[in-house]
Simulated assay, not measured.
Amino acid sequence: MVKNMLLSMLVLLMVSCNETTVASGSENKEEAIEGGISDIIRNPITADQEEIDTNNVAKITFSELSYEYERVDEGAVVSHDFSFVNTGKVPLIISNVRSTCGCTVADWPKTAIAPGEGGVIPVRFDTKNKSGRQNKPITITANTIPAKTTIYLNGQVDGESS
Results as ranks from 00 to 15, higher is better:
K110D: 09
N129I: 04
D73V: 13
T100S: 14
D53P: 09
V72A: 05
N96G: 05
L92F: 01
K110L: 05
L65Q: 15
E51V: 11
S79Q: 13
D81K: 12
V78R: 04
Y67V: 11
S131L: 12
K59V: 00
G116C: 09
I52H: 05
G118M: 09
D48Q: 10
C103I: 08
E64C: 03
F62K: 08
T61F: 00
Q49C: 07
W108S: 12
V72D: 05
S63E: 13
S66Q: 12
T61I: 04
T61W: 01
V78P: 05
V77N: 13
G75Q: 08
V57H: 09
Y69S: 15
I121G: 03
F82D: 15
L65T: 13
T111Q: 15
T87V: 05
K110G: 08
V78G: 07
G75I: 10
K130Y: 13
A106T: 03
E64M: 06
D81I: 10
V72G: 06
R71Q: 15
Y69R: 11
D107G: 14
G75Y: 09
N86L: 02
T87F: 02
S63M: 08
F62A: 11
G118C: 10
T104K: 06
P115F: 00
T87M: 07
F125A: 00
T127V: 03
E117T: 06
F82C: 15
T100A: 11
V57W: 01
K59H: 05
G102R: 07
V97P: 06
I93D: 15
T104C: 10
S63H: 09
W108H: 15
V123Q: 00
K128W: 05
C101I: 02
R124N: 12
H80M: 06
V85K: 00
V90P: 04
A58H: 05
A114F: 07
Y67F: 14
F62V: 08
K89Y: 01
N86H: 03
P122T: 04
G88W: 02
S66V: 10
N96C: 01
N129A: 07
N96D: 14
P109V: 01
V90Y: 00
E50Q: 14
T111H: 14
W108Q: 13
E64T: 07
I93F: 05
F125R: 00
D53C: 03
G119N: 10
G118D: 09
G102P: 09
S99G: 14
G75M: 11
I60L: 10
E70H: 09
V90C: 04
S66F: 04
C103L: 14
I60N: 05
T127S: 13
V120L: 07
